[in-house]
Simulated scan of single mutants.
Amino acid sequence: MKTWEEKLAFFDKIIDNHPELERKGKTMPYTSANGHMFSLLNKAGEIGFRFSKEKGEAFMSKYDTTRFKSHGSFMQGYVLIPESLYNDLDCLPNT
């Protein structure tokens, strides 16, 4: 199991692949576009991406994952990025 710092480094690697993005947030890193958050790293060290309903269901099915939870609640439209994908950036959605 990876530490929170290792997961933060992976989250930063995702962002580095998209120079138009900037990591925001001090205690809970996230990215946004046009004022809408679309990815984040929660305090548990889990990464969530926002998807359309159809794309989210397809991603969850393909990679055997679930909805993303933060602060004890599921975040509507967000999918948990499983650690099994942390070594394969190409599997991650194009943000």
Rank of each mutant, 00 (worst) to 15 (best):
N94K: 09
E22H: 12
F49Y: 08
N42P: 10
P93N: 02
H18W: 10
D90G: 02
G25C: 07
F51W: 11
G25P: 07
K26E: 10
R50L: 05
R50T: 02
S70H: 08
I15T: 08
P82L: 08
L40K: 04
F74N: 13
R23S: 08
E6W: 05
I47M: 05
S73N: 15
D12N: 11
P19G: 03
T65A: 10
K2V: 11
D90W: 01
N87K: 06
D12L: 02
N34W: 07
E5F: 11
D12P: 00
G77T: 06
R50E: 00
A9H: 06
F49L: 02
P19Y: 05
L92V: 03
R23D: 06
G25H: 10
K53Q: 09
S84G: 05
T31N: 04
T27E: 14
Y78E: 01
L21F: 07
M37G: 03
K24F: 10
K43Q: 15
C91N: 04
G25F: 09
D16K: 14
I47H: 00
N17E: 13
G77W: 05
E46N: 14
R50Y: 05
P29N: 10
K55E: 07
H71C: 12
K7T: 12
I81G: 03
P82G: 09
E54A: 12
S61E: 11
T95Y: 00
F38M: 07
E5A: 12
D12I: 00
N34S: 14
F74R: 14
L92N: 02
D90S: 14
L41Y: 00
I14N: 00
K24R: 12
N34I: 08
D12S: 10
G35Q: 08
G48Q: 03
R50W: 06
A33D: 06
V79S: 01
P19R: 09
G56F: 05
G77N: 05
D64F: 11
S39V: 02
D16T: 12
D64V: 07
F49S: 04
L89R: 06
K26F: 03
E54C: 03
M60P: 04
T95C: 03
F38R: 00
N34L: 11
P19L: 09
T66A: 13
Q76M: 09
D64Q: 14
P93C: 05
K53S: 09
S61V: 04
L41I: 10
D16N: 13
P82W: 03
F59D: 01
Q76N: 12
F10T: 05
A33C: 05
M28A: 14
H36F: 01
K24M: 08
E5N: 12
M60D: 01
F49P: 04
L40T: 02
I15R: 07
A44L: 13
L80K: 03
G35T: 10
